[in-house]
Design a protein around this nucleic acid. Structure first.
Lengths: 190, 190
DNA sequence: TATAAAATTAAGCACGTGCTTAATTTGTGG
DNA sequence: CCACAAATTAAGCACGTGCTTAATTTTATA
């Protein structure tokens, strides 16, 4: 990898940190540059403007959060289990994954006046990705009945809450996934 | 109530909206003033600076989120049930409660360089308020065992997730509380 | 080693910000 | 109706911001 790509990657990493810490508006391009140990001019050599930095991070995040609906619909409960398992494993082993995870949640609730960002946000809305899967799971009787929308919000909220704690205090132990899955299952406990 | 108090209350209401929408740094005092239909000079007549507006909102929020630990410790499971019930009722009937609820969550994850705000944030940390209650509940066997910290994060995260959806899309129906409580209970299902 | 390209910096412009200040309007009791 | 206080505004200062531009350093290659 050439020097330019490496620098760009580093700048994105630093930007992610600052965005999480201070939000979009609270983050100044000067601070990103300062923390990365470069001039702010260099930052604008690699990115055309502040929004485009944000946008690139969101794109990376969208890619990481995307679920395979086709597979998911075939075995909703199993897929959710696998996904949670995967998220928790990454939270434990890869700190920058946790940061991205929290970032993507914050992003959902921040207004940035940019058409492209706005439309990306819609495609990122994890909740609306999962709702059809939950619905299918309910139809099959794998999940307990009830409003799928708020059911979904509760599940994702729980995962988010856990991730946020993990990012704030990395030593926080993660809960048993079986426990989390029990929340959702219709079936009896052993 | 005299005219001044009413204006101040109105300004706080507007400020809450903008803070939720754009975060602390993204919010300009000019915008708060503009949305309230007054000059920015007036805003600074009622509040000494931007931080103090934020601070007053946090203080109101802290008061609303505070739990009565003494009572809670006497009947952890029952108290959690009552609290959730109360939160859900308010989410349904009082839109500004939902806003405040979401605001208080956002606040936790935003860095504002102010000693007073920082210490208030610690006292607001809903998670650390609930942990001893959860622990006591586990000791009594009312709640299922496991790490109380992440258990707590999951519960509060779920409630947050639901509240956020409710604020974003007010028509979202709320889930059954019994269902949420089932997540936590150690006991058997009927 | 000479030269073109890539990486990087320093300086600065236009603008929006938080906040102040002095002046003006509005409201109220005697 | 007047005087005084409270409510409100308009103008503006100092500063941090996003971003540009021209110049300089570093790197790679022939």
């Amino acid at each position: 990898m050439d020097k330019g790509d490496e620098r760009k990657k580093q700048l994105l990493q630093v930007a992610l940190d600052v965005f999480i810490e201070k939000g979009y508006y609270g983050t100044s391009t000067r601070e990103i540059a300062r923390r990365a140990g470069v001039s702010s001019g260099l930052l604008f050599h690699y990115f055309s403007n502040k929004e485009s930095i944000y946008l690139e991070l969101i794109k990376i995040g969208v890619e990481e959060m995307k679920i395979d609906t086709e597979i998911a619909m075939k075995a909703p409960c199993e897929y959710l289990f696998q996904t949670m398992n995967n998220i928790f494993e990454q939270l434990e082993s890869n700190p920058s994954f946790g940061k991205m995870f929290v970032f993507m949640d914050n992003v959902q609730y921040t207004t940035v006046n940019d058409k492209e960002i706005e439309s990306l946000l819609k495609s990122t809305d994890i909740c609306s990705q999962w709702i059809p899967v939950i619905l299918e799971g309910q139809r099959r009787g794998e999940f307990r009945a009830g409003n799928s929308h708020s059911l979904c919000a509760a599940i994702l909220g729980a995962v988010q809450g856990i991730a946020q704690e993990k990012v704030r205090i990395p030593s926080t132990p993660l809960p048993e996934i079986d426990w989390l899955m029990d929340i959702l299952r219709k079936g009896e406990r052993k």
